[in-house]
Structures are given as C-alpha cells and as structure tokens.
Design a protein around this nucleic acid. Structure first.
Lengths: 218, 218
DNA sequence: GGTTCTTCTGTGACGTTGTCACCGTCAGCG
DNA sequence: CGCTGACGGTGACAACGTCACAGAAGAACC
C-alpha cells in the first residue's frame, strides 16, 4: 500500500484512521481526454494524482470554457468532493490532459477524516488556500493583462510542461484554456508568426523565439 | 464580553482557548472609507464585523480596481490574516464602505487556535469555501455576462443593501466595483436612462424601473 | 455675491477583443 | 479517388476599453 506516499498527513493519522482510509481508497486509471467530474451532481470523491495531468475548468451555458487550474503528480482535487462542503455553490469540471492514474477517496470517508483529524482539516485548509491563490491569479490575468501577453505566457508554460519547442495543440484548445474564441487565438498566432516568434502548422505551434515571447509576457 | 456572539465556534473552545481569545481580541472603530488592509505586508489579524460593511478588492499596477466580495455583520475577513497561511500568494485590499465596528484577533492567536482546535480549523475551511464560491461567481460574471447585465444586477443588489431606490454613488465607484472604466459606466447608465430604467443626477442613480432592470440582469 | 478649485459627468475617436458567417485546407478512410 | 470531419483563415461588425478633453455642479474661500 503506497497511498501514504501520496497522502501527506498520513503520518498524523491514528491507526484507525489509517485503516479506514486504506480500506476505502480506490485506484483508477483514466486515459487522456476523460471527463472525471462535471457539476456538483456527481460527487466522485477526493482525487489524488498518482501520475498524469488534470485540468479543472468551468463551462458557460453556451459551452465556452476557461481553465481554472491544473493538477499534477501528488496534487489533490478538492472540488471533485465539493458536495461534502456546504458553501460551495459553483460547478467545476475536471478532465484528464494525459493518461492519468488516480487515487480516489470517497467523499464521506474524507469528510469523516477531516471532521476527526486536526491534521487533515488543516491540510485541507492549505490546499484550499493554494487553489484560491490560483483563482485569484486567474482573475488578475483576465482583468489586467492584454491578450497577447496572456497567449505568450500560455505558450511558454505549456512548452515547459511538454518539454519540446513544438506544442501539439489546436487553436480551439488554446482558446478553451484562455477563455476566448478560436478566431482570436488564430489572429494573434498569425501576428506572432509574422513577427517570427512562432511557426504554425496544422495542430502544432513551434516556438521559434522564446526570448521575445518571454519579453512580451512580462 | 460579547465576542462569543460573533465567534460562532466559541462553544467548542476549551476554557483556556476562550481566555486566550478573549484576552487577545481587540475592538476597533473605523469610519467609512478607511483602508483597513492592503497587501500581505500588514498582517493586522483576523477581522470580524460587528456592524457596518467592508469591501475586499484587488488593485492593478495602474490603479484599477475590482471588488472581490463584501463583508457584512458577523462576517469574518480571513485574508487580513493571510500571512498566517502559506500558499496565499495574492494581495487583497479591504476598506470600509460604512462606519464599521470590528473585532480584531491577532494573527498569531488565531493561528494557535486553528492549530489546536478542530472546530476552528473546520470553521476556517467553511469560510474559505464560501469566499472561494464568491470569487468563482465573480469569474463567471466577468467571463460570461455582458456589461449591461452586470451593471443592472449591481444596481439592484446595491439598492437592496441601501434600502431606497436612490443610490448615492458616483460612476467612478461603480466602475471600481465592476472592474471597468468610468466612461463605460457613464455610457451604459445614459442608455439605461434613455430607456427609462434609471434617472441620473450628480452623485446619484435612481432606479425607476426595477422590473426591466431585473429582466436585463437574468 | 463672486471666484477658484475640485469632483463628477459627457463625448468623440480609436484600439482591442468577441461574434458571426462563411470558406479553404488538410488528413484519414471507405 | 472522393467524402467527411476537424482545423485554420478572414472580413465585417459589435462590445468594451482607452485617451483626450470639455463642460457642469458643488465646495470653499473670500
């Protein structure tokens, strides 16, 4: 049982709490593109990323999206268990961006833990604060930064995640991440290309001048 | 000592915790327009509203603002004590919108409480979740709603807070709340006026057709 | 009362971003 | 090969933000 490696406050749990957790936690594999959670209705439980990558986003009535934050190895997704928290009024969706292995802790079990363990409660707090920070960062981006800067920054962080200089991503996906329309992304990328900062091809963006993109992003 | 009335988990504290809290909490009065907190630098401590009204907002480098949420009687302002939480990376400012009476609990005291009391830790969680919800609501407003709807909604909620149909507020203040420019507010209000939904005068907006405003807001 | 100052509001021109309609291109597949 | 669906490109226009400036309403001071 290697759950303890992924559950940081394991060491602060009692024997009983440990066995409760170990008995209830489930492993799951989800291929790239799986919708893991949508809306408050399905209360899967708390998810911990063993490997892979998740994207949390919100959806408008007309089907527009914007990425709220991402989750990587060892991150925990609180809001897939949002039903255990009253005061949570919004709907978040979560999907896999890569093939992903997960631990899933059923909502009620997690609730019992955080209701009985100070360590778990405080850790939950820290997690929530971290997510809160990410959302506040998003608000600041949306409000105060122009689109060219946002796009440049997105391309750069995306490429450091993926490794290479060639991003395999469509304009449509980029638009969904940044919460804008595909045409807008296309236009700006064309401009970047005319300035020699990127090279475009179907389904891919190559970063040809990271320094200028970086300069733009600041 | 009536702090217990404003501190919902008082009943779950031990005698020692109660006296710690009671000994450390301070009362403060702040007239309308006081800046209570700005940035992570000043870590006043956790604030509880006894009476009055607060506004939490963020500031851009160029001095633009947007209201994140508001606090009313009995609400607690976590982020004035943000320094006790690692993982909080953003700066929020808080100012009084009316003459306000506060309890202030020094940050270190609150930290000791939430580190030692499960009830306090879980209550903090709930508060954070509630604020999180408000910010998510804000993101949805900014992203998916057009400005006329946002303005209509703002005028309506503002008037239910203040009571009467005549809001004493400048276009500039409205713009700061909604995170836009004054000219934009002016233009839209003029349009509302031309449609008979409001009547404008210097420093005031009178709502003359709440029903149509309400219809707009949805 | 006037004069000055500040705050608040109004407006036109223009830049950026979002929306709409529609078309062209490319890849895969029968 | 031709069809199909996904992807990218484009022009026109709408919505909102920005800038520059002007005028009007109060406040303050004499």
């Amino acid at each position: 049982m290697e759950l303890e490696e992924y559950f940081p406050v394991w060491k602060d749990l009692s024997e009983m709490q440990r066995s409760l957790l170990a008995g209830a936690a489930v492993r799951r594999f989800a291929p790239k593109g799986t919708l893991l959670h949508a809306g408050a209705a399905d209360c899967v439980g708390l998810m911990i990323v063993r490997s892979g990558q998740l994207r949390a986003f919100i959806l408008s009535d007309e089907g527009k999206e914007i990425t709220i934050y991402r989750l990587f190895e060892r991150d925990m997704c609180l809001f897939s268990a949002s039903c255990i928290m009253k005061n949570i009024q919004f709907d978040i969706a979560v999907e896999t961006e890569k093939d992903t292995e997960l631990w899933i802790i059923p909502s009620d079990v997690y609730k019992r833990l955080s209701d009985s363990s100070l360590a778990v409660a405080n850790y939950t707090n820290q997690l929530m604060a971290a997510r809160f920070s990410e959302v506040m960062w998003l608000v600041e981006q949306i409000m105060w930064k122009s689109f060219d800067k946002r796009l440049a920054e997105f391309l750069l962080t995306e490429s450091t995640l993926d490794g290479g200089n060639v991003l395999r991503i469509t304009h449509d996906k980029i638009a969904a991440h940044l919460g804008t329309a595909r045409e807008v992304v296309t236009r700006m990328l064309r401009y970047f290309q005319s300035e020699g900062m990127v090279a475009l091809s179907r389904g891919a963006v190559e970063l040809t001048d990271r320094d200028r993109l970086q300069a733009l992003a600041d």
